[in-house]
Design a protein around this nucleic acid. Structure first.
Length: 730
DNA sequence: AGCACGCCGACT
DNA sequence: GTCGGCGTGCTC
């Protein structure tokens, strides 16, 4: 007889059920095994938590376990991590444990690069006449052993493209759940010397590793300061101790460079866990990690659950990135999970960022984390020179369009010198909204109650649900009169304006619209890297992780967009974004230049990002957070109610508020319910309650108690989502 | 989550 | 008198 935690959103304490064992499964069913069990006439996934002799009271008949999955059972440590997850993020044990288990791996067709060919050259040659084949080949080289479906999706190609590559002998197919990966093992660079700051940081990591007790270090290094080299050497040290390493990156596709560096340094000892590449490929890498074949694991947030047994080091690159927060159950933050795993194994956590999250930075200032600084770029080049342009002033002087006179002058100058320019605007489309000048209404999505974005030539699009209509020619759909006007420039408009101003320049645009086809992201960027583009226009896609040596000017067309979001982290997000985008300028030796246009250049997030002054920004922002009792000085939890009938959504929220107030003393503030800033999405009304308190534990306690009394009404059709430590407040 | 059970209003 | 709304409880 076994106890199984089923992966359903059951209340705590009522989620573990007993099953009997058919004799043929008896051997495989051990604690930590992933199973499928019959539950109310359906098959449900679950994880075995315990073996037991006696049948529990009040149970007449036990149903048998239906199936045991192939993957290895979870070791005791990860079972305990699952218990912690359920408790910390208020989900059922089964839901938490399922997130930790490997996806069921199956044998199927996998693709590998040919070993005897110069693939770099092949990609180059193919890209001229067969761009699809070039893309597919590049993906196979980057992810050897990738499964068919993932490859088709990732490269954005058809099956016939793969056949063509196979016929040319550039790739080979294999039926495998996994086979050791053939790596082009570039010899490690041994002569490369560290800067004094890097060496100092590394020695502190080494000391921490030698202590073999849990430690957290924050590597605060400016853009280009060589954080990755510190990660690589720290990983070597951990490996030399016979311990394993987990490297977390916010998004694996944007972290190609980091992945490649780890691959060239550690060869086939690296496993890439990549959920975006599909469950199956992730399954095969997972098994390599389980078998101990790959002591270095790189992946996005879920890689924090990698089944390594002697963990020495966890690296979180760009630790401030919100992508580390999972937005589905279990809604964990990979950084917090990393801390707990490190505590279990006496491991070191190395958090890296140029703009640390205030949560992390405050802990470092308080001495809970060791603070390591890399204040200079490795190549000795100065940080870019940043100029602020006051748009109010510019408009008074008769500026038309979206570019100030000063920014245009700088662009002209760079073009003349054959250097490259990035123009950044965090808004896509042609215009942010369309307003009727006779009735004053803004054209909104009927399902989301969000302003529709205008795209040239005549499309109105909802960015949340993709509702689309042709723009009503001339007349307003509400009042019938004409007078429709476009407001708020987006990247499409930028591109059009800059084309008109510099007709001879080669211009490319990088945003969600131009990269909707898979692989086009890489195509555009490699064109920029080959200097086939003079001006790159784009949304925040151009801000992250790019290293384009030819770019000497970055223009921020409107720095205020993220600042106006109704979110207490708006200033922090704005600062991070501006700092990151400014860091794109001047990475190839030539001094970089940045122009930031703003309507409120006196705002501290803006002028301090212009000065690249993180510590002053952090000090000011922390003072505000303290005053208004926001994280990191308090803890938040958020309960979101959604449903088709707004009054029912509201009623449910009000009911929970009463329950919460009954439980909460004066230590916990219950805010709301109120409509979410995004009050209606995809036809569902949204209300939320925010809980705020100094003690995270009592906050969770109160929520749990209140939830126990919540009798959800089956017919009312109101969904309730619980988010502990929410990052998304919209 | 998803389904059965059971208790009160408007209907062939 | 029934059909069916929805609130409640249970699932090994």
């Amino acid at each position: 007889m076994v106890q199984v935690a089923v992966a359903l959103p059951l209340p705590p304490g009522k989620e573990v059920f007993s099953y009997c064992l058919p004799p043929e499964l008896a051997e495989k069913v051990v604690p930590g095994a992933r199973v499928a069990v019959p539950f109310r006439g359906r098959l449900v996934a679950g994880v075995v938590v315990e073996l037991k002799e006696e049948i529990p009271e009040g149970v007449k008949e036990l149903k048998p376990v239906t199936r045991v999955e192939e993957a290895k059972p979870l070791p005791p440590k990860l079972l305990r991590l699952g218990e912690w997850l359920a408790e910390r993020y208020l989900c059922s044990l089964g839901e938490a444990l399922l997130a930790l288990t490997a996806p069921p791996g199956e044998k199927e067709e996998c693709y590998f690069p040919a070993e005897d060919r110069d693939l770099e050259e092949a990609i180059e040659v193919l890209s001229r006449r067969f761009p699809a084949q070039a893309r597919a080949l590049a993906v196979v080289v980057a992810f050897p052993g990738i499964d068919r479906l993932s490859l088709l999706r990732e490269a954005g190609v058809k099956a016939q493209t793969l056949d063509a590559l196979w016929r040319k002998g550039l790739i080979r197919k294999e039926k495998a759940s996994f086979k050791a990966l053939p790596f082009p093992s570039t010899p490690p660079e041994t002569g490369l010397s560290l800067t004094p700051a890097q060496a100092k940081a590394l020695s502190r990591v080494e000391e921490a590793l030698n202590r073999k007790t849990p430690a957290v270090l924050l590597l605060h290094g400016v853009t280009g300061s060589g954080k990755t080299e510190v990660y690589l050497r720290a990983a070597s040290l951990a490996l030399a101790q016979g311990r394993q390493v987990i490297v977390l990156v916010p998004e694996i596709v944007l972290a190609y460079q980091v992945v490649e560096q780890f691959r060239s340094r550690f060869g086939d000892r690296v496993a890439v866990l990549h959920s975006a590449l599909g469950e199956r490929e992730r399954g095969t890498s997972w098994q390599r990690v389980e078998r101990g074949e790959a002591p270095v694991v790189i992946g996005a947030r879920s890689a924090v659950f990698a089944p390594v047994s002697h963990l020495g080091l966890i690296v979180l690159d760009e630790e401030h990135e919100p992508a580390y927060k999972q937005e589905q159950v279990p809604r964990y933050h990979a950084r917090e999970v990393a801390l707990v795993r490190a505590a279990q194994d006496g491991a070191v956590v190395l958090l890296g960022s140029a703009t640390p999250s205030l949560e992390t930075y405050a802990r470092a200032l308080a001495g809970h984390y060791e603070l390591l600084k890399l204040p200079q770029r490795v190549d000795g080049s100065p940080l870019p020179r940043v100029r602020l342009v006051d748009l109010r002033e510019e408009h008074r002087r008769g500026m038309t369009g979206v570019f100030s006179h000063f920014l245009l002058e700088r662009v002209k100058e760079k073009l003349k010198r054959g250097e490259q320019v990035i123009l950044f605007l965090n808004r896509r489309g042609f215009a942010a909204f369309v307003l009727c000048r006779s009735c004053g209404r803004i054209l909104r999505c009927p399902y989301c109650d969000i302003a529709l974005t205008f795209y040239r030539p005549d499309l109105l699009l909802c960015h949340y649900c993709h509702y689309r209509i042709r723009r009503p020619q001339l007349s307003c759909p509400y009042c019938g009169k004409g007078e429709l006007e476009l407001y708020g420039a987006g990247t499409q408009r930028l591109e059009a304006e800059i084309k008109a101003l510099f007709p001879e320049a080669r211009i490319a645009r990088l945003d969600a619209e131009t990269t909707s086809r898979r692989g086009s992201h890489g195509t555009i960027l490699s064109a920029v890297a080959r200097r086939e583009v003079d001006i790159l226009v784009g949304t925040q896609m151009v801000a992250k992780g790019l290293n384009l040596p030819g770019v000497t000017l970055v223009g921020v067309v409107n720095a205020d967009i993220t600042l106006s979001l109704p979110d207490f982290r708006a200033a922090e997000r704005t600062f991070q974004l501006l700092y990151q985008v400014a860091g794109r300028a001047g990475r190839g030796g030539a001094p970089g230049e940045v122009v930031i246009q703003s309507y409120c250049p006196e705002h501290y997030a803006i002028y301090l990002s212009a000065r690249q002054d993180f510590s002053t920004f952090a000090r000011r922002e922390l003072a505000l957070r303290r005053r208004f009792e926001y994280p990191p000085f308090t803890h938040l939890a958020r309960v979101v109610f959604t449903g088709v009938a707004e009054n029912k959504v509201r009623e449910q929220a009000l009911r929970l508020r009463e329950l919460l107030l009954a439980e909460a003393g004066d230590e916990i503030a219950v805010l709301g319910p109120a409509p979410c800033p995004l009050g209606k999405l995809k036809g569902f009304w949204r209300w939320h309650i925010i809980l705020k308190g100094r003690k995270a534990k009592s906050l969770r306690e109160i929520l749990r108690k209140a939830m126990e009394q919540t009798r959800r009404k089956a017919g009312a059709e109101v969904k309730m989502v619980l988010d502990v430590d929410p990052l998304n407040m919209l």
